[in-house]
Design a protein around this nucleic acid. Structure first.
Length: 688
DNA sequence: GAGCACTGC
């Protein structure tokens, strides 16, 4: 059992100046700094509102033994990194970017003076690429005192905090960082690591780093009374609507937050709620107070999203119906009642078929607690769970399945290979992804030419690591260089890196479909994306032009941002920006080169099968290839997504007269690959 | 003849 130290009240001076804390702590014998001196790694359980992201870093910085140290602190979101850095720079009375700074994808607000640096975990992961031992976070002792040798470098790996609000999910980056940091810690005695954690995970993290001590910092939230359904609920949309009405008519003032799984359910609940209220108003003699019903999900246009933060009219109550966006990504004050359906959508990946699917799952206990906590930010609240206590205790997983176990690992494999982790199956993952998943990603990288026959990075592989892109897209970019069409490929890659730019409101479906078809380039969705972007550019990147053509302005602007970042990387690699003009057949060759693993041949009407594994795949009705009047005999596709069928998202047909072979000779290589795997297995067994 | 939980480099 790891040692658990309770330091109650230690950081409860949240909001007070840091000097007060320092005094209190230095007068106290048992202080965190001392524990940090005595331990290379600690786990800190900080409850909501404990101030661990803002106070802990300052405290470490002000400790006399850490003078000269650089403190890094990761945050799960970009806004969090920015706003925490701003706040701490104000508290320390320095300019943002001077002593206190932050780094996120498109912005590096740090200077040589920076001693406390907030960043997203993805940025830190990228830093490990250039600097595997994180030497930047090294302390150069100006004093020869022996004591100094071991102290000075702190890296607060803050995985579970959005501002002062706990979250519980581990991203792909944090899971990889865990393994890398464990190595760094063992190599460098002068490197200190503080992992902050939710209560549920603390012991697991502690064990991963070798049973390191755990600290507890209490928070400042209000109690939430949790009420369960007596019986399992058949229709949680109906149950949620009923519960919301009951609260509205019988409970004291305070806003309501309902958790649903997606857009459809949210729209259905909002509609039902509005209808019931209307019925009550017309049938009841009693006055029915006003209820302001507000949907929120990420796809909702920004101006409608902003409405949830506006205070309700006098005497009215707000009822927000949300996806799990309200679980972690945004916080609304004034919520006293939470209604939790107990479900959420999650992306799952099937490595064997190379297919993604978005599916509804029961949420984890940690997520359910997070949802309940949303009722306790302004005062004591209530959470109505539309499931039984027994379901909570016996059927829900304690934690969500980490992303690393349910996603394509192409990027992770490439990254680890570049860090010279030779045997990925031996890498110290806290929760190792399925072996099949790793092998499949390795195979894919080998097909793309990024790995050689013995699993090492090739010249192309090393260059692919430079790009913050999935391996196939990085390959497409490099092929664009070889085929002298970097300009066009750069645009396609950027467009594929943002959510679909086509806007299709339900009530104007036909109109928007017609608008989309105007951009079609025959036989290619990739070239259609290129066409959209180029026309937008011709029209001076105008917002009103987007609206006229049913395109998402936000998405296109993001694509432009991504494009300019990738262009910078091309410059540093000394790859020139070359346009092939209107000779787009050459662009199609680059596109094909990226998707050997996603090549399919025609099998029936509109039905294809993957050339390698025989997975059925269908053309999506929104594809430029759909209404051609004929179906090309070979296509490549960006990804396969399971909805009502296995649909190919973004497809391009093979050129009729092209000598480009869509079926990579790898089909025979695969057999060779598998044979070697089997041989290795056998050798292992013989060894035993 | 049809879909979109949510981040991040």
């Amino acid at each position: 059992m790891p040692l658990i130290l309770k330091l109650n009240g230690l950081f409860n001076t949240f909001g007070a100046s840091s000097s007060v804390i320092i005094r209190v702590l230095t007068e106290d014998g048992c202080v965190v700094n001392q524990v940090v001196r005595e331990n290379q790694v600690i786990v800190v359980v900080g409850e909501t509102g404990s101030g661990k992201t803002t106070q802990l870093t300052q405290y470490l910085h002000e400790d006399v033994y850490t003078k000269g140290a650089i403190i890094g602190c990761t945050q799960p979101r970009r806004v969090a990194a920015m706003s925490v850095a701003k706040r701490v720079s104000e508290e320390m009375e320095t300019d943002l970017g001077d002593k206190v700074g932050y780094a996120i994808r498109f912005e590096d607000v740090t200077s040589p003076n920076t001693v406390i640096k907030y960043m997203t975990d993805g940025v830190l992961l990228r830093e490990t690429l250039k600097d595997a031992d994180l030497d930047k976070y090294r302390y150069a002792p100006s004093d020869s005192s022996q004591y100094f040798i071991f102290f000075g470098i702190f890296c607060t790996l803050d995985l579970f905090n959005l501002m002062d609000d706990g979250t519980h999910e581990r991203s792909l980056s944090t899971d990889v960082l865990f393994g890398i940091l464990k190595k760094v810690v063992s190599r460098r005695r002068d490197f200190k690591l503080i992992v902050t954690s939710a209560t549920l995970n603390a012991e697991k993290f502690s064990n991963f780093f070798g049973s390191v001590p755990i600290f507890h910092i209490p928070g400042r939230t209000f109690p939430v009374n949790i009420l369960y359904s007596q019986t399992p609920c058949e229709d949680y949309v109906e149950a949620a609507v009923k519960q919301a009405l009951t609260i509205h008519l019988t409970s004291p003032p305070g806003d309501i937050l309902i958790f649903m799984t997606g857009q459809d359910e949210i729209e259905a609940s909002c509609y039902a709620l509005a209808e019931r209220i209307q019925q009550l108003v017309s049938s009841s003699s009693r006055a029915v107070p006003e209820l302001s019903i507000l949907p929120i999900y990420s796809q909702l246009p920004a101006d409608l999203q902003a409405k949830i933060f506006q205070p309700a009219a006098a005497g009215a109550r707000k009822c927000i119906v949300a996806t799990n966006i309200a679980e972690t990504s945004l916080t609304v004050d004034g919520i006293l009642y939470v209604i939790d359906s107990g479900y959420g959508k999650m992306k799952v990946y099937n490595p064997r078929m190379g297919m993604d699917a978005l599916q509804v799952f029961p949420v984890s206990r940690a997520a359910a607690d997070q949802r309940a906590g949303r009722a306790g930010r302004t005062g004591p609240g209530t959470c109505y769970r539309l499931y039984t206590e027994s379901a909570y205790l016996n059927e829900m997983l304690p934690n969500p399945v980490p992303e690393i176990q349910r996603t394509n690992l192409g990027n992770v494999v490439l990254l680890l290979k570049s860090l010279r982790v030779d045997n990925l199956l031996d890498f110290d993952f806290m929760d190792p992804p399925p072996q099949e998943n790793i092998l499949n990603s390795m195979y894919q990288l080998w097909v793309l030419g990024a790995l050689n026959n013995v699993g090492g990075l090739t010249e192309i592989g090393w260059r692919m690591v430079e790009f913050p892109l999935d391996p196939p897209l990085a390959k497409m970019l490099l092929m664009g260089d070889r085929l002298r069409c970097t300009d066009e490929v750069l645009t396609i890659v950027s467009m594929l890196s943002v959510p679909s730019v086509f806007f299709r409101p339900k009530d104007r479906a036909e109109e928007s479909d017609a608008a989309r078809e105007k951009f079609f380039v025959p036989e290619s969705d990739h070239l259609t994306l290129l066409n959209v972007y180029q026309q937008w550019r011709v029209n001076q990147y105008r917002g009103d032009w987007c609206n006229d053509h049913f395109l998402h302005v936000k998405g296109l602007r993001k694509a432009r941002e991504v494009r300019s970042q990738l262009l910078d990387i091309l410059k540093t690699l000394q790859i020139p920006l070359v346009s092939c003009g209107m000779d787009w057949d050459v662009v199609r060759k680059a596109v094909c080169s990226a998707y050997f693993h996603n090549a399919a041949r025609l099998k029936g009407v509109g039905e294809y099968v993957n050339c390698r594994n025989g997975t059925p795949c269908h053309l999506h009705p929104s594809s430029a290839l759909y209404g051609l009047g004929y179906t090309p005999d070979h296509v490549v596709y960006h990804e396969l997504v399971l909805t009502t069928k296995e649909y190919m998202q973004c497809a391009t047909a093979k050129l009729h007269n092209s000598s480009v072979c869509l079926v990579h000779p790898s089909v025979t290589f695969l057999r060779e690959f598998e044979r070697r795997e089997r041989e290795r297995e056998r050798e292992k067994e013989r060894g035993r």
